[in-house]
């Protein structure tokens, strides 16, 4: 992002404004299309807003810029939040959002890097983004590049074994330029993560794999900015940020309910939700 966008007196104000816009935009997209994953969009919104409007170094006019920080959206189904973030960041005009999941839209139900600038890799099947982010971070390690790589996975997604293959390598290679953020909303498609195939203690698991682990309120912009925006400094391990979040965050009747994984609001619910998102 350009430094001009930042409000240095209160850097979280921009993040808050963008997060609100992203939630309203994602809700509109999902409601209009009658398709999407609004619960997971909302749980990840504050993380993405913090990254795109407080942390990442990028230039939307040069999406292939070698030195850009990379953000990989491993939970690729959450396109409502990803596309609204990329649009807010200036990668494409707002009217593209109107085409969400329409015929031959660049805004597919899962992100495609060949369709949209700013998408680092194609995701959708779970457990793919983390290994790709690992490869990006290794490229930086090999070349001595200064960019950083951030990857966001769902928490249910952590059940995919490929994540642990990647976690092991990142720990062994001491990839301090790599940050994993787990959207820990404790719900997967049909039920809670712990009643499905429990992840706890997730922090200890990552520590055992050679990571530094930080838990943070995934809706607290100041706390997220502190953790995600901190320089690598003396840290010689990859960083795992467990972002404790609420699925459907921001809309009272959606919060904490698995049915909003891919539920779509009716007209009345939509109006109600929009009234709350102010």
């Amino acid at each position: 992002m350009t430094t001009a966008q930042r409000n240095d007196s209160d850097p979280t104000e921009l993040i808050r404004q963008k997060a609100l816009w992203m939630r309203r935009t994602a809700l509109k997209m999902v409601y209009k299309k009658n398709l999407g994953h609004i619960g997971g969009d909302f749980s990840a919104t504050d993380v993405l807003s913090t990254l795109y409007f407080g942390v990442l170094n990028y230039d939307p006019d040069r999406p292939e810029w070698d030195a850009r920080d990379r953000f990989v959206m491993s939970k690729g189904h959450a396109t409502g939040v990803l596309y609204s973030a990329l649009c807010a960041a200036g990668y494409f005009p707002q009217d593209w959002l109107e085409t969400y999941m329409g015929p031959r839209s660049m805004l597919n139900g899962h992100p495609n890097r060949n369709y949209l600038p700013g998408v680092e890799t194609n995701t959708g099947p779970l457990g793919h983004g983390f290994p790709v982010a690992l490869g990006i971070a290794i490229a930086g390690q090999i070349t001595g590049a200064s960019y950083r790589t951030y990857v966001l996975t769902g928490d249910g997604e952590q059940q995919e074994g490929s994540n642990w293959e990647a976690a092991m390598v990142a720990g062994n290679r001491k990839l301090a330029n790599l940050t994993l953020i787990v959207d820990r909303n404790r719900l997967q498609q049909g039920a809670g993560t712990e009643e499905t195939n429990g992840l706890d203690p997730l922090d200890d698991k990552y520590r055992a794999f050679g990571w530094e682990v930080v838990e943070v309120d995934g809706h607290d912009h100041a706390a997220l900015l502190d953790v995600l925006g901190a320089p690598v400094g003396a840290r010689d391990k990859p960083l795992c940020v467990i972002a404790n979040t609420v699925k459907g965050k921001g809309v009272s009747f959606m919060e904490g309910l698995a049915k909003w994984h891919h539920g779509v609001p009716n007209a009345e619910e939509y109006e109600q939700a929009m009234k709350e998102l102010v």
Partner: peptide, 23 residues
């Protein structure tokens, strides 16, 4: 030489990431 150990899914994903990183 990037040896990811006996982990083919990760190996191919890492390959894609290395390409993203210009390798």
């Amino acid at each position: 030489l990037v040896n990811v150990g006996i982990a083919e899914q990760n190996m191919v994903g890492v390959g894609a990431g290395l390409a993203n990183g210009g390798r």
